[in-house]
Computed example of a mutant assay.
Amino acid sequence: MDTGDLDAFATHLTHLPVLDTAARAAIREELQQDRYFIDHHADELDEAEVIKRLTREANGEPISVDAFTAAMHPVRISLWHPTGEAETRIVMDYTIDAATSDELLAVKVTRDGTVASVDWES
């Protein structure tokens, strides 16, 4: 691993709020295109306090993408330097309720801070 890669990690970790904002924007965009992650959690975790609150706030409508995205929180930040790959990555894992679900959205960020993907994982 060269110093440029280490410096890129350090810069991103020093500015986590910026990285979080970019990750949440990507999550929001992903959920606007396909809200199955939201609907799945609303159905499967209907007893979780966060889902109860979001459902109550939706007032009979589907839980909004914005409200759901705002309620998600990061549970892990991983630093990846895969051998043979050009891009060093940071992966931020977001969940709606870590106590009741092992499903998360993994936001993968390239060395330059660009969101490469948002993937549903468990």
Results as ranks from 00 to 15, higher is better:
G4N: 04
E61L: 10
K52V: 13
D20H: 07
D39T: 15
S64D: 02
Q33R: 05
L45D: 02
A8E: 00
H81N: 15
E103K: 09
E49A: 15
S117K: 11
A106R: 10
P17H: 05
F37G: 01
Q33M: 06
T14C: 11
M92A: 11
A25R: 10
W80S: 12
E57H: 09
L13H: 09
V115M: 06
S101E: 06
A8R: 03
D5M: 00
R111Y: 10
D66G: 14
Y94D: 02
D97S: 14
T55F: 07
I90R: 10
P62Q: 13
E103A: 05
G113Q: 03
E87F: 05
G84I: 15
A67S: 14
L104C: 02
A48R: 08
T100F: 04
W80P: 06
N59Q: 13
I63S: 11
H15W: 00
E61Q: 14
A86R: 06
D119A: 13
L79E: 11
L104S: 07
D119E: 14
A116P: 01
G60I: 11
Q32T: 13
D93E: 14
A58S: 15
V75Y: 02
E30A: 12
A42S: 07
E61A: 14
A67Y: 03
R76C: 07
G84T: 12
A58M: 12
G113F: 06
F9C: 10
P82L: 13
R35G: 02
E57L: 15
I27E: 01
V65S: 05
L31G: 01
I96S: 08
A25N: 14
D66C: 05
H12L: 00
V115N: 07
L31S: 02
G4S: 05
H41R: 11
E49C: 07
A86C: 06
I38T: 07
R76G: 01
T55C: 12
D5I: 07
D5Y: 01
E87Y: 00
I38K: 01
A42R: 15
E61I: 09
L105F: 03
A48S: 14
